[in-house]
Design a protein around this nucleic acid. Structure first.
Ligand SMILES: [Mn+2]
Ligand SMILES: [Mn+2]
Ligand SMILES: [Zn+2]
Ligand SMILES: [Zn+2]
Lengths: 157, 157
DNA sequence: GCTATTATTGCAACTTATTGCAATAGCACA
DNA sequence: TGTGCTATTGCAATAAGTTGCAATAATAGC
């Protein structure tokens, strides 16, 4: 039994009314074919289309939403105009996005350890901090100040 | 000279090509009329309309964007469907949003002190963490577990 | 395997937000 | 006060994402 089928099975066990459809199988297959990637809805639709199946945009979005609610994928706005979806499983990490040059820096999940603890202890709030994007200014852009206009900010979502 | 004119003046001093238009004055006036509120684009447009001036949606968005880039307002997605804009000035704070019941909890900016320091020291990254929304589950919803379906998540952006 | 139930899909309409471009209107300077 | 330059606006088109609803298809039970 494949990784994919194992996961689908698990999802159905969690809530038995769940149906395993061709569409869901294909979307998950596309995601797992490139597990480290930031997939857009369009990416996924294109990958599925290569298998000869055309999925409606709304179907893809609904399946991604379903996977997100199940904790299987994360959804992030990195400022590119389209949200990106990624398999939540393997190495938890986040990104720093420079508002000036658009650089995307990977950071380990450990940076949120303190914040998580604070929210749990002080507010009894269980945060779901997965694949966050933190906007700001990178080192290079701080050292090379430009005028306020020629910035990446305008181009950002 | 009013608070409003003082601010507009300052914005123009920062970049002299900036023009002070009726539209900009009215939008800023609407924001400052209720400084603690989370304003949607629609709210602002409605408030301005009460003064007898109809602004195009795109104009309002562009002015809010301009104010955001200038550091005057923050923009936040609290999961309501429309982004909210708030005057950045006075009391910096953030929100915890419950994915289950939709509750919105206010938290002090201090919760980010550690993270800010880490990013500055370890990555030389200057984060712009203003009026963040952190999604997760509130205390009440953790204690009162429900099935995975009747959740607020589905209704969220 | 066949049938009934109902979760899921596809489609079209809709919402929120952004963008290109011609018309408008600040404002610097005479 | 009048004139020219160009930043900003309004408008219409577009993009990303969501939603209502009728048609479809997964699956449980026979
Ligand atoms: Mn990533
Ligand atoms: Mn707030
Ligand atoms: Zn940069
Ligand atoms: Zn709750």
């Amino acid at each position: 039994m494949s990784d994919l089928d194992r996961l689908l099975d698990e999802l159905r066990q969690r809530r038995p009314s769940t149906r395993i459809t061709t569409q869901r199988r294909l979307v998950l297959e596309a995601l797992m074919a490139d597990p480290a990637r930031h997939h857009t809805c369009e990416d996924v639709a294109a990958a599925v289309a290569q298998h000869g199946v055309k999925l409606d945009q709304s179907t893809v979005y609904r399946i991604l939403q379903w996977l997100k609610n199940a904790g299987v994928v994360s959804q992030t706005d990195l400022g590119s105009g389209s949200d990106v979806y990624a398999l939540a499983g393997h190495p938890p990490h986040h990104h720093l996005v420079c508002l000036h040059c658009g650089a995307i820096i990977d950071v380990d999940d450990a940076i949120f350890a303190g914040l998580r603890r604070t929210l749990q202890l002080a507010y009894r709030f269980e945060p779901r901090i997965e694949h966050f994007a933190i906007f700001g200014m990178c080192q290079a852009c701080q050292e090379h100040p430009r005028t306020e206009d020629d910035t990446f900010e305008d181009e950002m979502a």
